[in-house]
Design a protein around this nucleic acid. Sequence first.
DNA 1: TCATTAAATTGTT
DNA 2: AACAATTTAATGA
Length: 231
Amino acid sequence: MSELDPQPFQLIDMLAASAWWPGLDAAQRQRVTAEVEERRFPGATVVMRRGETVEAWTGVIEGLVKMSSVSAAGKSVTFTGIGAGGWFGEGSLLKSEARKYDIVALRDTRIAWMPRSTFDWLLSSSIAFNRFLLLQLNERLGQFIGLVEYERMLEPDARVARCLAEMFNPHLYPGHRSELEISQEEIGYLSGVSRQRVNQALQVLARAKLVEVEYGSVRIVDLAALRRYGS
DNA sequence: TCATTAAATTGTT
DNA sequence: AACAATTTAATGA
């Protein structure tokens, strides 16, 4: 499998794999291709800082970012992680307001950067793009409603289970397989659980045949069961 | 190809 | 938080 290492996922591949792409006509695709650029962020660097005005809609080509906020007490609170294939930032773009949260790359990450002008133009010219945004906003609404439940559910096993299930939302993060290349430390950042506890939780979930744990990655075996774990 | 080493990740306390 | 064990990646013979 190493002799024919697949080419790295490129910006154009990421666009083509997005749910809204097939709905665009040739002219729209051409303009999007011309105006979206790739930006790279090393691990542990800020992609967008809270308070900055949002000038682009962004997608993850490769890597992993987290949406987080820092409380008055200085404690970092993570809301969600966004893996390859995911798009984010439409909320702040639509409302034309400053970012509400920090976006931090958890490891080396390549970002597809769509300027606001391109985004606005798609919004006013493509029904498919609008349909995608409606679906995405709806999915996220459901995700964050789940967070309320999540907060009260102190059981770390369940938090880890939900966190993993979120990362496999087929609409928000299309295309990637059941294998998630993420370290237990990164899962800890995303689920608000210590790395050590993540390790324990993964063993519980593995015994329940919901996931398979491998070095540096987790394979989702039973997504439906992960979603309802603990409820 | 194999051995050695460093770095990253995991498992345990 | 600290530590040991394990896996991976890089290096050079």
